[in-house]
Design a protein around this nucleic acid. Structure first.
Lengths: 266, 266
DNA sequence: CACCCCCTTTCCGTTAAGCGGAAGACGCCG
DNA sequence: CGGCGTCTTCCGCTTAACGGAAAGGGGGTG
């Protein structure tokens, strides 16, 4: 209707269907979905029916559709996230247990950082970032750490993009450029939280070519002495990096981890 | 070719494509995929191309296909797993930090338990269970805890299924039945690991109708006094349950968590 | 109770979207 | 160089997907 939208293929339609779900809207009714996607009701109905029978969607109590466990299962296999997450999580836990401060893991995605894992205390003021959330590089410590160790060309591209947006204050390209330089010098990034009196401190995780594939950060209260935490984060990032390299994460399937025994029990 | 397989629809084919990936095979070449799925090479080629452009698949260094970050993102929204995981994780971390023993979270799925989250030390002997892994109920402490608090009919159905399999020893229906009774009496399950000298101790998480929707477990060395840990796990499960109910997880979207601020920064 | 509104589900004729065989292009190894 | 295993492109055929129209629910309201 609206406009002759891009993808007219079934898979394109599927993508639109799935994109109708987000963290704020995890459940939809059928006609709801139809409206949000712009797909004809009949089409939505047919596709949803099929997806339900495949287990890719689920329906709750009454007529509320949501993403199914099957999709979750497929998503788990994304090497970019899960492979890394599997390696990084134990180290992040160590860091979290010893310091008690929130720990985040993020990966790059075009001009944004996607938060892949996040350990934090429960309670108000600690809701963000949500796993799966995307933020522009320069807004989060993880992003600055990643960007700072990318090739100059990539950095320039990002700064130009920022320039075009005409950001001011913390969004000003000059400010960001300075932060990048300082990050390279120190080996870790320091980033003020914009709504809470906290500071994010991040360090990159590099692949075998020396390019950053991810970064971790710790969030400490404003006024804390940064350097010790910077070193801590940097050292942890290195441990993760070494372990990932040893297991050849995100490269060829590799022999890492080997066979799984059918039933072991706990 | 082979046989006139079930799903001839595009979505059915998609499902087959995605199902070709698992924890042991996270990467495939194109013709590899074609062979595994039984789909004609041309068809595979076309679909893969489309999925790549949608970001649902990714290609690594050279011609290796794998699940893309997009699918991971969609999968995150599965309320059954992520909603629960979000609530449970902080409590699991507390438990892990204080005890240092592995903590698992699982949800039911027909006759199996799917491990949704798992905190554990790194190092050999702690590789399992993998997130996303499925095990029969009675094999893991999480499963026994779940089964024990399900309606008698469901339990009977499972025991009959076990009977048909003709299991012996720990797989004997009578043994399992006894374990269920004991679990109900104690409020937590105790399950011997089959390959390591360890014991899993689990407790269920109930929904508003009193039915179990998930369970957590802690894995302690054999010879540890079980009861204190049983109480600990049970109490943590209750905390998770209460928090989940307060936030109306897995029911209507609900007002819980409210709006997210566009940029907050860390 | 009868009405209406909104949602879900079914039906069915039309059409173009998806299909897949065949052949071309590339790279690799013997 | 020729054979083999990839990935990619082409194109005519057909079937599977499409979506308008209309029929089944509920569950509120006047």
């Amino acid at each position: 209707m609206t406009r002759v939208e891009a993808h007219r293929s079934v898979l394109g339609r599927l993508h639109r269907l799935l994109s109708a779900f987000d963290h704020e809207h995890t459940h939809h009714s059928l006609s709801d979905l139809s409206r949000r996607t712009g797909l004809p009701l009949t089409t939505t109905h047919r596709m949803v029916g099929e997806l339900l029978s495949l287990g890719m969607l689920d329906r709750t109590d009454e007529d509320q559709l949501c993403i199914g466990v099957d999709l979750w299962n497929f998503g788990l296999l994304a090497p970019k996230t899960h492979g890394l997450q599997r390696v990084a999580l134990p180290f992040m836990q160590d860091l979290y247990s010893t310091t008690g401060f929130p720990i985040h893991l993020g990966i790059p995605d075009a001009q944004q950082i996607t938060t892949v894992e996040s350990l934090r205390p429960h309670g108000p003021g600690h809701e963000r970032p949500r796993i799966g959330q995307r933020d522009p590089y320069h807004v989060v410590a993880v992003g600055v750490a990643l960007l700072a160790f990318q090739p100059a060309a990539a950095q320039q591209r990002y700064l130009s993009w920022l320039e075009d947006r005409g950001g001011t204050g913390p969004d000003d390209p000059a400010t960001v450029r300075a932060a990048l330089a300082q990050t390279r010098a120190a080996g870790f990034s320091v980033n003020n939280n914009r709504t809470f009196p906290r500071v994010g401190i991040g360090a990159p995780i590099l692949d075998h070519t020396g390019l950053p594939v991810a970064a971790i950060s710790i969030v400490v209260p404003e006024g804390t002495t940064n350097t010790p935490y910077g070193l801590l984060v940097r050292s942890t990032a290195r441990s993760i990096q070494r372990t990932a390299l040893e297991q050849r994460i995100d490269v060829h399937p590799g022999p890492g981890s080997g066979r799984t025994h059918p039933s072991e029990g706990d």
